[in-house]
Simulated scan of single mutants.
Amino acid sequence: MASLGGQQENEEDEFISSLPKERGWSFSHVYLFEQFWCPSSLIRERNIFQKHFHAKQSDVLVASFPKSGTTWLKALTFAIVNHKKFSSTENHPLLTSNPHQLVPPLYTFRGNIHDQILQLSNMAEPRVFGTHIPFPSLPKSVIELNCRIIYICRNPFDTFVSAWAFFNKIKVESLSTLTKEEAFEMFCNGVIEFGPWWSHMLGYWKESVARPNTVLFLKYEDLKEDVDFHVKKVADFLGCSFTQEEESDGVVESIAKLCSFEGMKDLEVNKSGTINFEIKRFENKLFFRKAEIGDWVNHFSPSMVEKLSKIIEEKLSGSGLSFKMHS
């Protein structure tokens, strides 16, 4: 974390302790900040970021609610943006680095702020970042410069199952393991890191409707159904479309194959490597569980299905956003 002046740090602590607080899924506590639940460390980083981060017009943001296909979309976006630089997939960075290393989280301030800003400004352009931050809390310069944002969401049923499995593995050690019933109750109330999930989705959805040239909204299920189509769609959106020659040479298919779940899961870096995130070092293999659509049917009781279906209907009503039920 960036060091702040003593007085400023105390003010920050006081502010955070005044916010509504709940038990988190992977953190001891999450706080309701700007209408979403997040850990105290992230609130601090976000406030520093608002003051010191300067977006560049060419910046690309891969945004998502946790466990919605983030790792896959990061890999695809990195490969698409750099498809001329790494025309052959033989020596591709994705073969030796986890997608989260190549597309770092947007909020990464630790240690000296000025060193961090210098590091970010020296990143090769276009800079590609990942974030779970809801749209209204993104750095102002990202919004003002109309930086391209690609958002991926997933059927809330599968999102819940994936999140429950993942957060229990990465939680701080002092925290008890959440039972499925406890986690489901919290999920239905919107209490989960970066939740409520419905307002997270709707924030980006509404922006994608209002500004389709700035925000591209994707569904995990659609991406699974036709990867090649979406690889081309993302490339067109980012202004780095494939030429006829590249398409004839199978570049689109090779990117889809390179970034496939099976392909990435089998790489040595993703089987044995680790990556440093906010709370601790994660094993890369944690990011590759099942990647299935409809796995929720193995975990949901009829009453859970009924309850979550009603919440989805109620929260998304009139927005135009809907999900197909895969079972």
Rank of each mutant, 00 (worst) to 15 (best):
E207S: 07
S18T: 08
P136Y: 05
K206H: 14
I48Q: 06
I143K: 14
S64R: 05
Q57A: 14
V103K: 03
E283T: 09
F78P: 01
D249Y: 11
F160E: 02
V215Y: 01
N98F: 06
P104N: 00
N10D: 15
L178K: 09
S272E: 14
K257A: 12
D295K: 08
E313F: 11
N146W: 08
Q57P: 12
A165G: 11
Y151E: 04
G195V: 05
F109G: 04
E144G: 08
I48C: 07
D295V: 08
F49E: 07
I192N: 10
G195L: 01
F287R: 03
S309K: 11
S3P: 12
L94R: 04
S97A: 12
S322T: 09
K206W: 10
R154H: 04
F109Y: 10
K265F: 06
S301H: 10
K219Q: 13
K310P: 05
S327V: 15
V128D: 01
T108L: 01
A79D: 01
E181D: 09
T179P: 02
G273F: 03
Q57D: 14
V128S: 02
Q7R: 15
E268Q: 13
N47K: 15
K310N: 12
E22C: 12
P139D: 00
L102S: 04
T89S: 11
I149F: 02
C147L: 02
F49A: 11
K180Y: 10
G195P: 03
G24I: 08
R127W: 01
Q57N: 13
K315N: 07
E262H: 13
A291N: 14
N189S: 15
F282Q: 08
I312C: 10
T131L: 00
N98R: 03
C188I: 07
Q101E: 15
T108C: 00
F229I: 07
W164G: 01
I275M: 11
T77Y: 04
D59Y: 04
V251A: 15
C147M: 03
S301C: 06
S41G: 10
A63Y: 03
R289D: 03
V269D: 00
L286C: 06
V251F: 09
M1Y: 07
S28V: 14
M264I: 00
E262N: 11
L118K: 15
F78I: 02
N213I: 05
P104Y: 00
A2P: 13
V172E: 15
S97L: 09
E22L: 06
E22S: 12
P212S: 10
V252G: 04
A235N: 00
N213K: 12
S87K: 15
L4F: 07
T159G: 04
M304W: 09
F261S: 00
G5H: 14
P139Q: 02
E225H: 12
E283V: 09
L42K: 07
W205M: 03
Q101H: 13
R148S: 14
G250T: 08
E245L: 12
I275H: 10
S58A: 13
K232I: 11
F157W: 13
F229E: 12
F229H: 15
G195W: 02
P126F: 01
L76S: 00
N91D: 12
I143L: 14
N276L: 10
W37E: 03
F166R: 00
A291V: 09
I255W: 01
